[in-house]
Design a protein around this nucleic acid. Structure first.
Lengths: 258, 258
DNA sequence: CCCAATTTGTTCGTATGTATA
DNA sequence: TTATACATACGAACAAATTGG
């Protein structure tokens, strides 16, 4: 016999229209999203079944599915026929390549080997402060990584994270992680990166980049500034990547108009 | 009284399952896509109503909507409540910015002023030939544009088009176009660009770029190679953009995992 | 190996609301 | 105002995938 206890009361906030005349499925979607943001369901965890959710919200199965459809389209939920609906998990290489855009000029994609070059706790500079919505001088964690492809140093990443948001992050935990750093954010800190914005320029390699990438200073390199966002477009990571594009390229796939 | 003539027979190929066990709405989607590709409905033109299409295909309204939903998500169709369903039109500035990614470092977006620098009919080189799926030496049209932002030359584009595909394209028609070049492709040649792939590198400015952008040769610039695709991922345009990123940046918005 | 229970996926049909011409 | 078109919401039935006995 299946339990038919109320779901809505305990796990979700009551559904209320977003605005006058707003569709019902949007209210359901918002309630689901709030529950996920609040960590009510851990990343990778399963939600109640569609029939349970629908009856819990007091809506039809079709309306519930419409709401879940949109969350699936936004990559926040994942559906698996016969198993259930899950909070999206960023465990695989698939996720890596969603945000890692460097590949060899001939099109070869490889998983980069990451070398941690430096791990520091510092006060935040003007530029990352603005990107992360912090006041200059607030404590941040600054990580320098070197990414190797085909045994060659191709990318230098300088990552800036709010020390408050990533309380307890240590060099050890960073070194000992399996999988990607975004997977670490998600599993260890409950922070899911949903989107990112990147701005790229061509610059002459500075001394640090030249040394780490084995280049002559002044050689043209690509500099990519990335702000990674979580739910509600809240910034959680600022990253400056310096890419040696002598043998590699920065790849971008565009789709049609929105 | 509304006409209830059969739609499917005249306008669409009969729906047949893609494969054993493939869902019905996919077959409907494919048939719709074929009709659009074939130019059965011009860009910007309206499709028959959902009820007409559904009865024409012999499926329920819900199944028809599911098929159209996917085409809308892929930006191939546009729905307007109370008006109808239309083949997506690339008329607006909105479309321009879908493929134009350069903006000022402070975030200012501006519509570029385009100067046609050269228009030539030549035999295609190795690189654009491969991108366009042509044999080296086939006739192509080569267009050189200079893009001005805030009165400054910021981008040089070299565009390569198959002379066969764009038969009748002249310098005059190119100069006299309103709107974007992709809009011209669509309205004058029936070619709709749906997606594009870009590969970027940092390079030292060559003499041509230096002259056109008013730079010293050797200055770092971004070089973006773009292949623009139409339905069925058929390549229709190859473009090499050289960007002076001294005051401007190349912007890219990423969404979550697929 | 098969069966049964569970869960999502697909398809159908109907009714009503909202926007447009 | 009226007719038409898409948007939302409801409910039902069966298919397909998964899991566990």
């Amino acid at each position: 016999m299946a339990l038919t206890t109320s779901i809505a009361a305990a796990d979700f906030e009551p559904i209320a229209p977003d605005a006058a005349g707003a569709p019902l499925y949007r209210a359901v979607k918002r309630s689901l999203l709030r529950a996920i943001e609040a960590g009510r369901y851990p990343a990778g965890g399963s939600l109640p079944s569609e029939t349970e959710l629908a009856s819990g919200f007091g809506v039809s199965i079709g309306t519930l599915r419409h709401a879940v459809d949109e969350l699936v389209a936004e990559h926040i939920l994942v559906r698996r026929q016969g198993r259930g609906t899950f909070v999206a998990l960023h465990n695989a290489d698939r996720f890596l390549f969603q945000f890692f855009h460097v590949e060899r000029s001939d099109g070869l994609r490889e998983i980069p080997r990451v070398e941690l070059v430096a791990f520091e706790r510092v006060r935040v500079d003007e530029e990352p402060a603005q990107a992360l919505g912090l006041r200059p001088g607030e404590p941040v964690i600054q990580v320098d990584n070197r990414l190797m492809l085909q045994g060659r140093a191709v990318v230098h990443d300088r990552i800036t994270l709010s020390a408050l948001l990533f309380k307890g992050l240590s060099e050890k935990r960073l070194r000992e992680r399996r999988s990607t750093i975004y997977h670490l954010y998600q599993t260890e800190f409950g922070i899911t990166v949903t989107r990112a914005q990147e701005r790229a320029r061509a610059v002459a390699a500075d001394r640090l980049a030249a040394r780490l990438l084995g280049l002559a200073p002044g050689v043209p390199v690509m500099q990519v500034r990335r702000t990674a966002l979580t739910f509600g477009d809240k910034p959680v990571e600022y990253r400056v990547s310096t890419v040696n594009t002598a043998q590699h390229e920065y790849v971008n796939l565009l789709s049609g108009p929105p």
